[in-house]
Design a binder for these strands. Structure first.
Lengths: 361, 361
DNA sequence: ATGAAAGCGCTAACAA
DNA sequence: TTGTTAGCGCTTTCAT
């Protein structure tokens, strides 16, 4: 594909596409100047810029970001790895990330891991091959995540979303205070008069958040002189209810001195549990109260609307991205990364009233 | 940042990163050969390949896809534009797209439009600047979509997901047959004994699918000698129920000779309507039956499980991507694009039984 | 404020 | 089968 083998001293060769070179040529400026018009407009004189812009318009110039990113040695791409979008928590979070990133001139690449370590590895590799400048991600358990260790080892900047970084750790995160907010949630249950409150969780071992929220539950119980009950752990992420699942819940809520309130560690779980209870003829909140955690919008759409500990999902995404960019661009290409930048950003939760919590039966 | 300004005839300059050049050097082969090991392994001898692979391993080589994509003049990036991920339909679709794309060695860039034309334009421009080879997208109304017209004009390959391309049009799409499937759905209502059936829809004017499904409804009614009723059009995409909305539904279902069954043009709408009915003390399906459309997994999680016309959302995504790739790689870099390739792929729907449909009151 | 020149890391003719 | 070579489109010193 050699073009213009005949041109000697003449200007290189008219390439076909609407590239910067052609824009520059049409505007009668150098490639460098044309480039500056788009990346550093303040470095070029007003009228020169206008000529370039006009030429660009006429040629239908569309900057090729691949070229820019390759050359610039910073791709301005942020990789995003979320467990799944089928849980609205993460869908809402993505929207926050997307708005924030595009507003700052950053590009995004999204992958979903389904909490599968093998997939996580592979997807991260995919992102790294695209030379993302950094990552925003949620893992099942930050404390034992192979993928985070790899990232640490390679020195790839990342910010966790939802996973709450250790207070004195080196990792960055944006989340609510899972433990404190869970405690606050359970305390609304206690305030409603409940004494026998149990936690319902997805795969406990797998999720650091489930564990932290469970601890918050224990805090609340102990602070009020109540006995923490053994939790019900459900196989997470089931698309539909298995008979075995239904049966376990039946036993759980009909046993002698069964709990009068259930604290589910996430909203999807709560919604599923409420459906099962209804199927079993157990009234919510008449017979059993149910409190969720997450604050997905869907919860408010249901009847009764889900009572829940709401996280600002959109904002978690937006702030996680903002935090990452702050690390990537220390004071707009200024000094070293501010060491006092707080590692774990804690956003306020909210207690959403709903109507799935009532007084004990 | 000039390195090695002293090197004269000597080999260029040892660059720092683990690049292909360095791998090649370490393996004692040329850049071209090293490249082939990764892109066209069949062109290189077994043992040579192994040496290269080993060198790559030792250097911790990670291919820079930015370089590859820039040079190759085909980015192998597919742009994806979906209205929102907060509707599980599209979240499920994304997962199908993601699996399919990564399995084929393609990269993805996702944007969400919220059905907002301004955002659509802007997001498409963003994707085009990244030099996506093609697009998979869902628009509100394919028949009057500025963005599709632009794409057509620019000759950008794309495949619609969910939007059903006209039978004899030039556009490609992957969807169910909205009209036929809607008719089938409404016929289950009729089979259950309903005579007064009404459509509930989001923004009617905005969505081509809502219109097509409404036509399917009319087909069913007429075929059975029934009188189509005026539809109830609800402000779409409301996160929560406004009092006005509740009131409109109350009047709708309590009017004299009110419908005994409602066909909602999508599942989220159905879920919201069911909640409102419950709040109004109207039993589903005791007093009014409700049929949804979409088949999101969430529907089965509720109690009663949502009766719905199910689309294969995952597969719609996967197939749309497959269709696009088939256009991008005519018979694996063979002949011209097969003109007989069907434009509108119609996938089978399924009637999901659920329990929100019963006999008329 | 602008230009000249040197690549970013990779692929793909073409030649050997 | 392998190597040589010429860039993809852009940004960025450095010099003017």
């Amino acid at each position: 594909m050699r073009r213009n083998a005949t041109a000697l001293a003449a200007p290189p060769a008219p390439s076909n596409g609407a590239t910067l070179v052609n824009v520059a040529r049409a505007a009668g400026v150098s490639l460098a100047t044309a480039s500056r018009v788009f990346s550093n407009p303040e470095l070029v004189r007003q009228d020169t810029a206008e000529r370039v812009l006009q030429a660009a318009g006429e040629l239908g110039f569309r900057p090729n970001l691949l070229g820019a990113k390759l050359r610039a040695q910073r791709s301005r791409i942020v990789g995003v790895m979320l467990p799944t979008l089928e849980n609205a928590v993460f869908a809402e979070c993505w929207h926050g990330i997307e708005e924030a990133a595009l507003a700052q001139g950053y590009s995004l690449m999204l992958v979903t891991s389904r909490y599968d370590p093998a997939r996580e590895r592979e997807r991260i590799e995919y992102l790294l091959r695209h030379r993302v400048d950094g990552l925003v991600l949620t893992v099942a358990d930050a404390a034992r995540s192979a993928v985070l260790e790899q990232l640490d080892a390679e020195g790839v900047p990342y910010v966790l979303a939802y996973n709450q970084a250790a207070r004195r750790g080196k990792r960055y995160s944006v989340s609510v205070d899972n433990r404190v907010s869970a405690r606050a949630g359970v305390e609304t249950l206690i305030a409603a008069g409940h004494r026998r409150i149990a936690v319902v969780s997805g795969a406990f071992v797998a999720s650091d958040r489930a564990r932290q929220r469970h601890m918050g539950y224990q805090d609340a119980m102990r602070a009020h002189g109540l006995q923490p009950l053994p939790p019900l752990s459900l196989p997470a992420h089931t698309p539909t209810h298995t008979p075995a699942e239904v049966e376990r819940i039946r036993q759980f809520v009909t046993a002698p001195s069964a709990p009068t309130a259930l604290f589910c560690t996430n909203d999807m779980l709560a919604i599923g549990v409420i459906a099962i209870l209804k199927r079993l003829g157990v009234s919510v909140p008449g017979d059993v109260s149910v409190l969720g955690y997450d604050g997905i919008e869907l919860g408010q759409l249901l009847e009764p609307p889900l009572s829940t500990v709401a996280q600002p999902n959109n904002e978690i995404g937006a702030r996680a991205l903002g935090c990452l960019l702050a690390r990537l661009e220390p004071a707009s290409a200024g000094a070293a990364p501010d060491p006092r930048l707080p590692r774990a950003t804690l956003l306020p939760h909210a207690l959403r009233e709903g109507a799935t919590v009532g007084p004990p039966a």
